[in-house]
Design a protein around this nucleic acid. Sequence first.
RNA 1: GCGCCCGUAGCUCAGCUGGAUAGAGCACCGGCCUUCGAAGCCGGGUGUCGCAGGUUCGAAUCCUGCCGGGCGCACCA
Length: 447
Amino acid sequence: MAQGENFGRGTSGSGRMVLVEFVSANPTGPLSVGHGRQAVLGDAIAKLLSAVGYTVSREYYYNDAGRQMLVLGESVRARYLELLDEPSEFPEDGYQGEYIRDIARALVEQQGESLKGAADHLPFTQKAEEVIFADIKSTLDRLGIRFDNYYNEHTLYEQGLVDDVVTNLRQQGLVYDHEGAVWFKTTEFGLEQDRVIIKSSGEPTYRLPDIAYHREKMRRGYDWMVNVLGSDHIATVPDVMAGIKALGYEPEKVTTVIHQFVTLIREGQQVKMSTRKATFVTVDELLDMVGVDVTRFFFLMRKADSQLEFDLDLATKESQENPVYYVQYAHARLCSIERQAREKGLDPDALSGVDYTRLELEEELALLQAMAGLPSFLDGAAEALEPHRIVFYLQDLAAKFHGYYNRHRIVGEDQELSRARLALAGALRVVFANGLTLIGVSTPETM
RNA sequence: GCGCCCGUAGCUCAGCUGGAUAGAGCACCGGCCUUCGAAGCCGGGUGUCGCAGGUUCGAAUCCUGCCGGGCGCACCA
């Protein structure tokens, strides 16, 4: 207990440098529920690694050029022209969300009709990126997530690092030209087929800058790199790892955490999510409905490998029943006990002379044992990159405590016993506070 | 067709680097507020751990095959 907020913090990381890359959504639209899961998962992993002694950096990698952004810009342009009653052609695979209209409206207000004859999509794309990135960052902010670095793919091109990768690979004979495109011999690394890294149009595919980016991570000297990705990006991993290996670095230093999709249930129906369609639910909407604590807790209640079913009706309507309150209530209850003790003249923080041998009940020993196991428990969770274990640990500890509380008085007639139990309660309060903080959930003193 | 993930109680899921009678929440039924917070506690489960083989003293856990669901298999990211 004397360790206070430091209790439970392991040392297995021993100061090693680890980079956690997550979210990495390109600014084409607001964060959807799927991104939300990744954001919360990545952030919890970062917090967990930090808690066991790693020096952690969080990074958001994005690309604000390329085809996606072109389509985005053209989508805005079409809406802009619509607002001006000009003839327009909405891209076939354009972004249909209402936010595109909002951006177009803003452009009309700020620029009037001056962009009517714009030569290209750039002014539209730029405005869209500005607005959308601000939105994404505000959503992340609401979730309590901060990044240490936003890495723009542009940087790689500006510094010639992309070309350099091609040159390097070509010198090693790992690259060849075929049908106007440049191919990387991924089959040399045991993969099924070779992959195009530069299209016949001269543009690189995502693989090339991705490889260059990972080489930069390697060069920056991290001991460990964790990438959090959605299951739809799973196919990119082997190619990038092959690239890293080809360039002389150790792919073993990279661990990829793949999380499965979030299935949304609304009014008993499954909601299919698509960034381009207007049907997806945003993280902002989720936060409006259930709040940060419930959102974070819910996203961490399942291991990354499992698909996560998020029943919006249940989450909104029955939020009182949500397990997050069960754990928070344990914390609030412990705070309340300490308040009561102070009113009766007992100082919960005065630990000297406490006779711990008075804690002899089976339940008390079980609580002590559970708390004592926290450091090694966290080491295990960190090593496995599985923050959901913390959620289960807290629920379990809360159940133990609530049961104990209902059967036995903490502050009672016997002063010695009361002091010993208060010390136990204080330790529990600290463990709940630290655990909840670790998953980014608040620690209310009253509810 | 190939690769990865999942398949455990009515529902949503833990447990899976092998170990004793397989757990939680929700839902359902019945109890508990004159003493530290009832957002709580106590009691109530006949589960083919998807199926079939295999390894082992021992398998929900490891291996193989099959079935069912998800995600991939681009000169999109």
